[in-house]
């Protein structure tokens, strides 16, 4: 087994050396997180409680996204103090806020959706901003990192459980997880299945966002890489046209994934809060 794996590495190294620039490592280099901020200067190593807390490139881009959101939404918030009639950038942001409220939170959670609205709005705007930041040339996509999406999914999981427990009580919530009318002998199995179901939801959330945001970037890099692998200028127009198409698709994906993550979180919260459905 070990020899197989080493053989594979050796093979890939061999082909990389023999064909010069056909090594695909550079694609991952652009997609993976690194301890070089913006690829320029190294960030100081921070280790606390046995965890590597070094501020990586993706952390910096999350902070950039957070800063953009704080500045933008502060401006929007202040514009409402002047007049209730929106104008300019307030219009755009308001459309998104009202969309999250009326199309995501209200239909899925229903009564009491106001309590979860700040969380859902923050999730939506944060993921959206991170996704869009990833489309800026030279930047990094924080949401294409499984750790970041896992963290967001864990938060969604915690909010869902907290919402369910607060609304139905601790015992009531966990009893309500098992659907009504299940035969007694099935209860142990159902309990395990439902408990697993609780954890598969955030897992799916994390993987979906991560995979969607990573895939587009890999495809763009691969298409551009074709020019260098085939070593001909003739493939360049085709490559660039396709890469541009994927890039435009990525804009759509950035929006859709932010929507889906928020929508599913909201759906799970709704299911936890109103278990009778």
């Amino acid at each position: 087994m070990i020899s197989d794996s080493t053989k594979a590495i050796a093979d890939s190294l061999h082909t990389a050396q023999s064909t010069g620039s056909e090594d695909t490592g550079w694609i991952l280099h652009h997609i993976l997180d690194s301890k070089y901020i913006l690829g320029l200067f190294p960030s100081p190593e921070i280790h606390l409680f046995g965890i590597d807390l070094t501020i990586t490139n993706h952390v910096v881009f999350m902070w950039i996204a957070a800063a953009i959101l704080i500045v933008l939404l502060n401006k929007v918030s202040r514009s409402y103090k002047k007049s209730l009639v929106p104008k300019g950038i307030t219009n755009v942001v308001e459309i998104l806020i009202v969309f999250v409220r009326d199309e995501i939170a209200r239909p899925t959670i229903g009564k009491g959706h106001e309590k979860f609205l700040p969380y859902l709005l923050t999730t939506f705007f944060f993921i959206l901003t991170c996704n869009f930041l990833g489309l800026v040339p030279g930047s990094a996509t924080a949401t294409s990192n499984i750790s970041v999406t896992a963290s967001l999914a864990i938060l969604s999981f915690l909010v869902t459980q907290a919402g369910g427990i607060m609304h139905n009580g601790f015992g009531g919530y966990f009893r309500g997880l098992i659907p009504h009318g299940v035969p007694a002998w099935l209860l142990p199995i159902m309990a395990v299945v439902e408990l697993l179901g609780l954890f598969t939801k955030p897992f799916a959330l994390a993987v979906r966002l991560f995979a969607n945001m990573t895939a587009g970037h890999i495809v763009i890099y691969a298409l551009i890489g074709l020019i260098f692998i085939l070593k001909t200028y003739f493939v360049a127009p085709v490559s660039i046209a396709f890469a541009l198409f994927i890039y435009l698709l990525e804009i759509l994906v950035a929006l859709i994934q932010a929507y889906i993550f928020t929508m599913l979180s909201s759906l799970f919260i709704g299911m936890a809060v109103h278990q009778e459905h």
Binding site: I9, S12, L13, A16, D23, G25, L28, H29, I31, L32, D33, S34, K35, I46, I51, D52, L53, T54, I55, T56, H58, V59, M62, W63, A66, T122, T123, F126, A142, N145, I146, S147, V148, A150, S151, L152, I154, L155, T214
Partner: peptide, 24 residues
């Protein structure tokens, strides 16, 4: 084979999870 110090595509970095949580 990418030779990155941060590891592979599916490697989970606990530090990043912590930072994401704090940031969010």
């Amino acid at each position: 084979s990418s030779g990155e110090s941060s590891g592979g595509l599916l490697d989970v970095n606990p530090g990043l999870i912590v930072w994401t949580g704090i940031t969010f």
